[in-house]
Amino acid sequence: MRLILNVIWLIFGGLWLALGYLLAALICFVLIITIPFGFASLRIALYALWPFGRTIVDKPGTRPGALIGNIVWIIVAGIWLALGHIVSAVAMAITIIGIPLALANLKMVPISLMPLGKEIVPVDQPNPATDTYFGAAR
């Protein structure tokens, strides 16, 4: 089922969203000081291409630099990328088949706003922040 959803996602919106993240990464790499944002944008671009079967978790530990970086990211690119996800989600939710795709788009809004301090992991990988596996404590 994940494969089917990922292929439909790729055709009807994932490619365009990934291109938006790639453009943001390119701009970040050109400006040199924003290179960490470029790497975060590339991670999200790969996630935007193939989101089903992966999830977003917080990196363990406190990261004060990530908070400052996320504030800068929101101002520079986060708002525009989040709006792209919201508009795409509304368009996909028009049909019944598109509802899971719209939900995946809405799931990506928080990481498009604040990508630093987050990690994209497979769904079946344990969450290091809560030390759980499939929702059950070890």
Rank of each mutant, 00 (worst) to 15 (best):
M1H: 12
R2H: 08
L3Q: 11
I4M: 13
I4L: 15
I4W: 08
N6L: 06
I8T: 11
I8H: 00
I11F: 10
G14L: 01
G14Q: 01
G14R: 00
L15Y: 11
W16V: 06
W16N: 08
L17F: 03
A18W: 05
A18M: 10
L19V: 13
L19A: 12
L19F: 09
Y21R: 01
L22Y: 07
L23S: 07
A24C: 11
A25F: 01
L26E: 09
L26Q: 09
I27F: 10
C28I: 06
V30E: 02
L31C: 14
I35N: 02
F37L: 13
G38N: 03
G38R: 07
F39E: 03
S41I: 08
R43C: 01
R43F: 04
R43H: 02
I44Y: 00
I44P: 02
A45C: 06
L46M: 13
A48V: 04
L49R: 04
W50F: 12
P51A: 05
F52E: 02
R54E: 00
T55G: 06
V57Q: 03
D58R: 12
K59D: 06
P60Q: 10
T62H: 09
R63W: 10
R63G: 08
G65M: 12
G65W: 13
A66W: 03
I68L: 15
N70Q: 09
N70T: 09
I71N: 04
V72A: 14
W73F: 09
I74H: 01
V76H: 01
G78P: 07
W80Q: 04
W80F: 15
L83I: 15
G84N: 07
H85T: 05
H85W: 05
S88P: 00
A91D: 03
M92E: 05
A93Q: 03
A93Y: 06
I94F: 13
T95R: 00
I96M: 05
I97D: 03
I99E: 11
P100G: 07
L101A: 08
L101W: 00
A102N: 05
N105F: 01
N105C: 14
N105H: 12
L106A: 08
L106Y: 08
K107M: 12
M108S: 13
P110M: 09
P110I: 12
M114A: 15
M114V: 13
P115T: 07
G117Y: 08
G117C: 07
K118T: 09
E119A: 15
E119W: 09
I120V: 15
P122K: 11
V123H: 01
D124M: 10
Q125M: 14
P126V: 02
N127P: 03
N127T: 11
T130S: 13
T132Y: 03
T132D: 15
Y133Q: 12
F134Y: 13
F134E: 13
